[in-house]
Nucleic acid binder design. Structure first.
Lengths: 149, 149
DNA sequence: AACAATTAAATTGTATAAAATCAAATTGTT
DNA sequence: AACAATTTGATTTTATACAATTTAATTGTT
C-alpha cells in the first residue's frame, strides 16, 4: 500500500508540504515578537537588508528577498509611512527607485536585537541541526536557481 | 565583524529566511505543472488530502494542512465550483461541514500522477538529502507544536 | 537622430494567510 | 429545562505573493 502508484501523491510523502507548513508556522511564531516593533514579517526581513545596506534599489532588494515590485512597493510605502525608510528616484537613472534607511530605521535595529534569541528558543534545535537544515535549504534554493540557466 | 552584536540580525544568519524563500520558490515551480490541472498549490494539497480521505470535516482538513477556515472556506468553495468536492453539513452535528470528493475529483488524481516526478527533477536532490531535509523539517514542526502545550 | 528593445517600478487582478469577530449548534452543569 | 461555555465554520480586515500589463527611462542599432 505504501508503494502503490499513487504513493507519490500522498501529503506525507511530499517535501514541499513540510517546507510550506514550517515556513508559515515560523512566520506565525514571529508575529508576537514583531508586533512589539509594529513590523510584519515581510517588513522585518526588508529592514534586515536595510540595516546592512543603508541604500539600495527596489530591484536589488527584491533579488535579495526573492520578491518582486508587486510585493515590495506596498511594503516599502508602509515602511516609508512609518518613517523607517526613504524612497527616491536615482539621479543617474530615473527608472531606479532608491530605498534608503533613516535614523529612526537604524534605531529600530537596537530594539530588534531581542528577536533572534527569542525565535531560537522557539525553534528549539541544536547547532548541528541548524547548520544541516540551513545548508540543505540553500542547496535546494541553489539547485532551483541553477535550473533557470 | 561576523560576531558583532548585530550578527544575529543579518539575513544570511537566519534559518527562517531560506525556509520562507525555499517554500515560495517551490510553490512557484509547481505553478506551470498545476496550471495544466487548473489547480493552485493550496487547492492541490487540499485535493491530496481528499484523494486519501474521501470525506472529512473542514476542521480535520485544516489540522492536516495547518490552515484555518478563513483560508479553507474560499479554497473549498472554488474546488466545489470546479466539481471536485462537495460541501454539506453533517447530520449528526450541524456545525460540522463535511467535505467529500466527487468522481470528477477522483479522476483528477490520475492526471496528477505526472506532477511528483516532474517536481523531483526540479528539486534535484538525492534520496539521502531528501530524507535528511524531510526529517529536520518535521522535527522543527514538532518542536513548535510541542511548545503550544 | 530615430526607433526598436530592454529595464525598473507601479498597477491590476487573483489567490492566499492569519487574526478577530460573529452566528449557529452542541455540550456540560445545575 | 435553563443557560453558560465551547466548538465549528463563515466573514471581515489587513498584508502578502505573483502573473500580467503599463508607463517611463535608458540603451543599442542603424
Amino acid at each position: 500500500m505504501t508503494d502503490d502508484k499513487y504513493a507519490a501523491l500522498k501529503l506525507e510523502n511530499q517535501l514541499c508540504f513540510p517546507l510550506y507548513a514550517c515556513s508559515k508556522e515560523i512566520v506565525r511564531r514571529y508575529k508576537p515578537f514583531l508586533d512589539e516593533l509594529d513590523l510584519t514579517y515581510t517588513q522585518y526581513i526588508a529592514m534586515m537588508v536595510m540595516w546592512d545596506n543603508h541604500e539600495l534599489s527596489v530591484k536589488e532588494l527584491g533579488d535579495k528577498l526573492y520578491l518582486d515590485s508587486g510585493t515590495l512597493t506596498p511594503v516599502l510605502k508602509k515602511l516609508e509611512s512609518k518613517g523607517y525608510v526613504t524612497r527616491c528616484r536615482s539621479k543617474e537613472d530615473e527608472r531606479v527607485l532608491l530605498v534608503g534607511i533613516t535614523a529612526s530605521g537604524m534605531d529600530l535595529k537596537e530594539k530588534a536585537t531581542s528577536i533572534p534569541p527569542k525565535m531560537s528558543r522557539c525553534l528549539n534545535i541544536c547547532k548541528e541541526e541548524f547548520t544541516q537544515l540551513y545548508e540543505l535549504l540553500y542547496k535546494v534554493l541553489g539547485n532551483m536557481e541553477a535550473e533557470e540557466e
